[in-house]
Amino acid sequence: MEVGMDDPILSVRHLTIDIPLAQGTMHAVRGIGFDLKRGETLCIVGESGSGKSLTSLAIMGLLSKKLRQKAEKLQFAGLDLRNQTPRMMRGLRGDRMAMIFQEPMTSLNPAYTIGDQLEEAYLLHRKAGKAEARARAVELLGKVGITAAESRLSQYPHQLSGGLRQRVMIAMALMCEPELIIADEPTTALDVTIQAQILRLLSDLQREMNMAMILVTHDLGIVARIADKVAVMYAGEVVEQGTAAEIFDNPRHPYTRGLLRCIPVPGKTKPGERLGSIPGIVPSLVGNFQGCAFRGRCDVAEPICSEMVPVQEEGQEHMWRCIHAAGEGASEGVSQGVRP
């Protein structure tokens, strides 16, 4: 089934991921959903352990068989990903959908050269010859800003710096010009200067190739610079979702507002001034769980928060899971100045 330019290339509805443990079942991802169109960037943001990376791996079909995954809808480019065999998924991965992993040193194979690893997907999916694959690898290395690209093909991952290895990972993901790219914390281990270069590179390549992109991160500063849409995850749920402007300028969920208060605002936050913080820890998701997972850390929580939490909407895309209506309990100006 063909997908029109205005139709979502990726649709997720009520995705759940359960992890069997000795002490019970951990409900790691609990009923999340979103749509993503070509050319759009969705940033999934939240604390470590909120389910961001598991969601990405589920879309790519890379979850361990020990984990239990269900979804009402998991559709990519008109294909139902729930019904794809492992062989069909291997045909999609690296070709029409690709992933940039968090740590390039462990994602790249230390026993193979950069050239071998770059050319592998192209040889598999394009049925091309070695010379064509090598030329494509040199082209992509140059496109991601690596100088002397041809000489790099014979090098091994340990011979490159962290920034260069991350650029190699990006080039590898782009070898077959995928329609969807998922970047899981692609700048975590890099210094600020290299981080900015990688983000600018991803944004430029996305526009050039009209790709849909999911960027997984815990850094709202990154989100402010690159996102079209934002999904804020907490304890396995999307607690707020909307356009970047809605999330940063008009946050509705107490968790989102708490995250934004942790960010220094240029021109407003004075040197040495104490930043905001969110007290407490993420609750255990093992066993039965009901109500708002954030209620134990929320400064506007009420007894009713331990019951079923309503999903509220404002406009066509902005939604949040909270008993409070628009504006109730909101702290004015928490995000003013965060957006560039």
Rank of each mutant, 00 (worst) to 15 (best):
S56V: 03
S56R: 11
A58W: 02
A58Q: 08
I59K: 04
I59M: 09
M60Y: 01
G61L: 04
L62T: 02
L63E: 01
L63G: 09
L63M: 08
R68M: 05
R68P: 02
K70F: 00
K70D: 04
A71L: 01
E72C: 06
E72W: 04
L74G: 06
Q75W: 04
F76W: 05
F76S: 04
A77G: 08
G78S: 12
G78L: 09
G78A: 11
G78T: 07
D80K: 09
L81M: 07
R82N: 07
R82F: 01
Q84A: 13
Q84T: 05
P86N: 06
M89N: 06
R90Q: 13
G91A: 06
L92G: 08
G94E: 02
G94L: 11
G94W: 05
G94T: 01
D95K: 15
D95W: 04
A98R: 13
A98L: 08
E103Y: 06
P104V: 02
M105E: 06
T106F: 10
T106I: 14
T106N: 13
S107K: 14
L108V: 03
N109A: 11
N109I: 03
N109C: 12
A111C: 10
I114W: 05
I114L: 12
D116R: 15
Q117G: 10
L118T: 01
L118G: 09
E119D: 02
E119N: 09
A121S: 11
A121I: 00
L124C: 10
L124W: 00
H125I: 00
R126W: 00
R126E: 03
K127S: 05
A128N: 05
G129Y: 03
A131F: 01
E132Q: 15
A133V: 06
R134D: 04
A135K: 15
R136I: 01
R136P: 12
A137L: 12
A137W: 11
V138G: 15
V138Q: 15
V138C: 15
L140H: 13
L140A: 13
G142P: 12
G142F: 12
G142D: 09
